Amino acid sequence: TEKQERAIEYIRRLGYSEEEARRILKKANGNPDLAKEIARRIG
């Protein structure tokens, strides 16, 4: 989804690889607090 793409872009800007960014997002899917934090940061 567009939100996922924005989140991946944001995480990659922090210096993670695409693969790492996707792994972090997968974790965020099972972790509402982390997901909220990422969403808050990407606006």
Rank of each mutant, 00 (worst) to 15 (best):
A39R: 02
R41D: 08
I8L: 14
L14D: 00
E2H: 07
R22Y: 12
R6Q: 14
L14P: 00
E20A: 09
I24W: 03
L14R: 02
K36F: 10
P32D: 05
I8Y: 08
A28W: 03
T1N: 13
E18C: 08
S17P: 04
I11C: 04
I24N: 00
D33W: 08
A35Q: 02
E20Y: 06
K27G: 08
A39E: 02
I24C: 05
G30P: 01
G43T: 15
R12G: 05
R12Y: 03
R23W: 14
Y10Q: 12
K26G: 09
E5V: 09
G30N: 09
I42L: 15
G43L: 15
E37R: 14
A7E: 04
A35I: 04
P32M: 07
A35H: 02
A21D: 00
A28L: 04
R12S: 06
E19W: 10
K3M: 14
K27E: 15
A35N: 01
E5Q: 13
D33E: 14
K3V: 13
K27M: 15
I8E: 04
G43K: 15
E19R: 08
K36V: 14
A28D: 00
G30V: 02
Y10I: 13
R41H: 12
I42R: 12
E5I: 13
E18T: 07
E37H: 11
A35W: 04
R41N: 12
Y16M: 05
A39D: 02
E2W: 01
R13Y: 11
E20C: 11
R23N: 13
N31S: 07
E20N: 05
Y16F: 15
L34V: 11
K36C: 10
R23C: 07
E19K: 09
I42F: 10
Q4R: 11
A35K: 02
K26A: 14
E18G: 05
K3D: 15
E20L: 06
G15H: 02
I38L: 10
K26V: 11
L14G: 01
G30A: 04
E19G: 08
A21L: 03
A35L: 04
L34G: 04
I42D: 11
R12F: 03
R12I: 15
P32S: 09
E9S: 06
R41E: 10
R12W: 03
L25E: 01
A7W: 07
I38R: 05
N29P: 01
G43A: 15
N29A: 09
E37N: 09
L25Y: 05
A39N: 02
A39S: 04
I42P: 08
A21F: 01
R13T: 15
I8V: 10
G43H: 15
L34S: 05
G15L: 01
E37A: 14
K36D: 03
A21M: 03
G15K: 01
E9V: 05
T1C: 08
K3P: 11
L25D: 00
E9P: 00
L25F: 05
G15R: 01
A28N: 02
N31H: 08
N31K: 07
R23G: 11
N29K: 12
I38W: 04
A21R: 00
G30Q: 06
E2F: 02
R22Q: 09
Q4K: 09
R12T: 14
L14M: 11
D33R: 10
I11D: 00
E19F: 10
G43Y: 12
K27R: 13
L25N: 01
E19L: 10
N29E: 10
N29F: 10
A39Q: 02
L14V: 02
R12V: 15
T1Y: 14
L34I: 11
T1G: 10
R23M: 14
A35T: 02
E9N: 07
A28E: 01
I8M: 07
Q4A: 13
K26Q: 14
I8T: 02
R6M: 14
A7M: 07
A35S: 03
S17I: 02
A28Q: 02
K27N: 10
R41T: 12
K27C: 13
I38M: 09
S17Q: 03
E20H: 06
A35P: 01
K27P: 01
K26M: 12
A7L: 12
E20S: 07
P32R: 03
A39V: 05
K36I: 15
R22H: 10
E9D: 14
D33Q: 11
E37D: 10
E20R: 04
E2T: 12
E37L: 09
S17R: 03
R41M: 11
K3A: 15
K36G: 05
N31D: 15
R23V: 11
R40T: 09
N29L: 11
L14A: 02
T1I: 14
L25R: 00
E9K: 07
I24M: 07
I38Y: 05
E5W: 09
R13P: 00
R40A: 09
I8F: 07
N29D: 10
K27L: 15
E19S: 11
K3Q: 15
E20V: 08
A28Y: 04
G15W: 00
E18L: 10
T1Q: 12
R13E: 15
I24K: 00
K3T: 13
A7V: 11
R41S: 12
E5K: 14
Y10E: 15
K3N: 13
P32E: 08
T1D: 13
R40Y: 05
Y16V: 03
Q4E: 13
E37T: 11
N31Q: 07
I8P: 02
T1R: 13
Y16T: 01
D33F: 07
R40V: 10
N31A: 05
E9A: 08
K27W: 15
A21V: 05
G15N: 02
G30M: 10
E2L: 06
K26T: 11
A28I: 04
E20M: 08
L14C: 07
N29Q: 11
E2Y: 02
L25Q: 01
I42W: 09
L25M: 12
I11T: 00
Y10L: 08
G43M: 15
K3S: 14
R22A: 06
I8N: 02
K26C: 08
P32Y: 07
E2K: 12
Y16R: 02
T1V: 12
